[in-house]
Every structure is written in structure tokens, then in C-alpha cells.
Amino acid sequence: MKRTSENQRVTEIIGILSGCYPDVKTQLDHGDAFQLLVATILSAQCTDRQVNRVTPGLFRKFPNPQAFADADPTLLENLVRPTGYFRSKARHIRECARAIIGQYGGRVPDSLDALIKLPGVGRKTANVVLGAAFGQQTIVVDTHVKRIARRLGLTGSADPGRIEQDLMKVIPKAAWSAFSLQLIYLGREYCIARKPRCAVCPLNALCPSAIRPEESPEKLDGRDDA
């Protein structure tokens, strides 16, 4: 009975999120799979808005993988500097471009196993590309998804890989990509890290961590580390 009740709660969560955010997509501006890959690498420890300020000029200067592979390291570092960790990001992008040219003829691979072998590409980046560029069903675990999945009680883990697996078990596969993006939207609008807007959150009644008017935000301390 408990399992049935939990399944019903998850179904209601999905329904509410789909009603609030029926048309979700990555907020990273891009023209093709490679540009999305580069933008996602740059988005680590950086906001999508800031990445979108950098990439138009970056992609004009380097329009394809070969251009990135041949890029002057110092010039590339200077262009991506506003996204933070610019030296490692520039190095990863150059190495990634070279690997794509050498191993895949300049085309971004469309499998998780291949993507995570590229320099600077982890599961989160790979899942963003697979979902947004190739239309595959993936769950992207960023800081918003990690925080909200824990607050909703959909996982008890703080490890992104484990969170991904936990969500894959309870969310229907056809909803994976949309669900993780919907959590990101929810995190930006309502389920904020330090001062969540629980009183007006559409998932309030279904969230075991929801703060009631008489309660303090410290209630979330055990579930929130982002």
C-alpha cells in the first residue's frame, strides 16, 4: 500500500510540473550538438545566463570543432574567462574537439559511453547533450535537481550518479528529460537553495520538506547541501 501511495504521489508531482512547465528546453543557446557540448562544459560552476553572454562571440571566432582544436590556448582562455575555471575549461574544450575530430570524424557521438570518454565530459554534460541535441530520454542532475529531488524525498543520496539512478527508478522513462528540466525551472522560480518559496510552490502539498508558516528554513538543513 505504501508503494502504491508513493507511486501516486510521484504521478501527481509529474502532472503538476507538466502543467506548470509544459514546454521545457535547455537554457543554453546553441546551434548544433558541438556548440551545446561546449556551452555545457562552460556551464560548470557558472550560470546559463553568463555562458550565453560568452558563447556568441566564442562561436563566431571558433565556428566548428577544427577551429577549437587549432585555437590559440591563451586566446581561448581569455574568451571563456568570464565563465570561471577558464584554464581547465579551455583545455578540456580543445582536447574534446581534437578527440571528436580524431575519433568521430568531427561529429559529436550520440551515446553516453562515448561522450563520457571525451575530455571534460561527465554524466551531467553527456546527458544534457543526449537529451537536448539527440532527443534521447536522460536525467540531468545539476544542483537544482539534486536539491529538489532530496527535498521531495525521491532520493536520500547526495551523489549525482546515485540520484540519477534513483530518479530513473521512480520516473517513467518517457518523462525523464522533461522531468529534470522541470525541476530546474522549479528550482529557479520556487525551490531556491537558501530561501525556498514554499508557501507558493505548486508542489507544497506533496513535499515532505515544505516549510510551513510557523517553521524555520533550518528544517531543510538535513536535505539541502546546494
Rank of each mutant, 00 (worst) to 15 (best):
F34I: 00
Q136L: 15
L58W: 06
L36W: 07
G120R: 12
A33N: 05
P217D: 01
R151H: 09
G153T: 09
K25A: 13
T125V: 13
Y185L: 11
P172T: 05
C191F: 10
P56T: 05
I192H: 11
R60N: 01
D166N: 01
D48N: 08
V200K: 14
V54E: 07
Q35N: 01
L181G: 00
S18P: 02
I184S: 13
Y185M: 09
R223C: 06
N64D: 15
F134P: 08
Q66A: 13
T83G: 01
V51M: 11
F59Y: 12
L118K: 02
S5T: 14
G31I: 12
V140H: 12
K25H: 13
G102H: 02
Q8V: 06
P119N: 04
K89R: 13
R197F: 03
F62L: 04
V200A: 13
N7T: 11
A114N: 09
K169F: 05
A33C: 05
A90W: 09
N64W: 07
E12W: 07
A67H: 02
P196M: 15
Q45Y: 02
T47L: 05
V121M: 09
G31E: 13
L167V: 11
K117M: 15
N127W: 02
A133C: 13
P22G: 08
Q27V: 09
P213S: 03
P213M: 01
C198Q: 12
E214P: 00
Y85R: 13
T143C: 04
C201K: 07
L183T: 10
L115D: 03
P65E: 00
G135Q: 06
T125Q: 10
H144F: 03
R98N: 02
E214F: 05
V141E: 03
D224I: 12
G57I: 11
C20M: 14
R223F: 07
A149H: 12
F34G: 00
V80L: 09
G222E: 01
A199S: 15
L181T: 03
E77W: 04
Y21A: 05
A174D: 13
R162H: 06
R151D: 10
A99T: 10
R197E: 05
Y185G: 10
P22E: 04
V54Y: 09
Y85W: 10
C20T: 12
D72N: 14
Q165K: 15
A178C: 10
G161W: 05
R212A: 06
N7W: 10
P109V: 14
L130S: 11
R49V: 15
L118M: 07
D159R: 01
R49D: 14
I101W: 00
Q50H: 12
P217K: 03
V108G: 00
I163A: 02
A71E: 05
T138F: 08
V170E: 04
K146T: 12
